[in-house]
Computed example of a mutant assay.
Amino acid sequence: MRKLKLQMQVSLDLFIAGKESGMSWMIWPYTGPWTWDEELKKYFTDTTASNDTILLGWDMADGGYIDHWNNIAGQKDNPQNVFAANVVAAHKHVFSRKPRRSRWDNTTTTTEDLATEVLRLKKLPGKDMITYGGATFANALVRTGLIDEYHFIVNPAILGKGVSIFKKLDDILRLTPCSARVYPCGITVLIYSDHNTKKGPPLAIP
């Protein structure tokens, strides 16, 4: 069964955005010059390449995520080009509360129940899957109990308040630490697995 990974930039107190500061506290807020060191860039690019499916919520997809990386992939002199090409090559599976038509290549939109559809996708052949959010969608995925690995890209900043993906959990989320690495630019990457990930009943694949 394929794994589902969640990868997000977070503050030291696990917020993904500030109430007022937005993403200004990030060493690299996904736009502008790529200010991460080369080792961290390689981790980021290799992690994306290890998956062939990206799960997104409609708000993030429609808010510019796919268009942004499609644009970067076409810029040969941009150092983010390789990462962007991996995003373009991966199939984007976009969840929406109401029927919508995708305007992007290599993208499917769905209104299927989140947990049921993720379980179906996990049983398909291929590489692993990854999600980057946004906040509401990531929180919904966390609450399904279907995330196998959490990849936190931790910025050396404490926000005190902000946007969290860990709201309204039904129970304590107990994770197993897999690795921790400090990178020269100041980022720490923490990787955890959830060995209690719900596997669900066997599903018939059409």
Rank of each mutant, 00 (worst) to 15 (best):
N70H: 12
N71M: 14
I72G: 02
A73P: 14
K76P: 13
N78I: 07
P79F: 01
Q80I: 12
V82Y: 10
V82M: 11
V82R: 10
A84Q: 03
A84V: 02
A85L: 14
A85V: 12
A85Y: 11
A85S: 15
V87N: 02
V87A: 05
A89Y: 04
A89K: 11
H91S: 11
H91I: 12
H93T: 05
V94S: 05
S96W: 07
R97S: 12
R97M: 12
P99F: 05
R100N: 11
R101V: 15
R101G: 14
D105C: 12
N106D: 02
T107M: 02
T108D: 08
T110C: 09
E112K: 11
A115C: 09
V118N: 00
L121M: 11
K122F: 05
K122W: 06
D128S: 06
M129Q: 04
I130S: 01
I130E: 01
T131Q: 04
T131P: 04
Y132R: 00
G134Q: 09
G134H: 06
A135W: 02
F137A: 04
N139Q: 11
N139A: 07
A140D: 07
L141W: 00
R143M: 05
R143G: 03
T144G: 00
T144A: 00
T144D: 00
G145R: 00
G145V: 00
L146G: 04
I147E: 03
D148Q: 02
D148T: 01
D148V: 00
Y150F: 10
F152K: 10
V154K: 09
N155K: 09
P156Y: 07
P156K: 03
A157W: 05
A157K: 07
L159P: 00
L159K: 01
G160M: 06
K161N: 15
S164I: 11
I165H: 05
I165T: 09
K168M: 13
K168T: 13
I172A: 15
L173Q: 04
R174L: 13
T176E: 12
T176A: 08
P177S: 08
S179W: 10
A180S: 13
R181D: 01
Y183N: 04
C185L: 13
C185M: 13
C185W: 13
I187W: 03
T188K: 14
V189C: 07
L190H: 06
I191W: 04
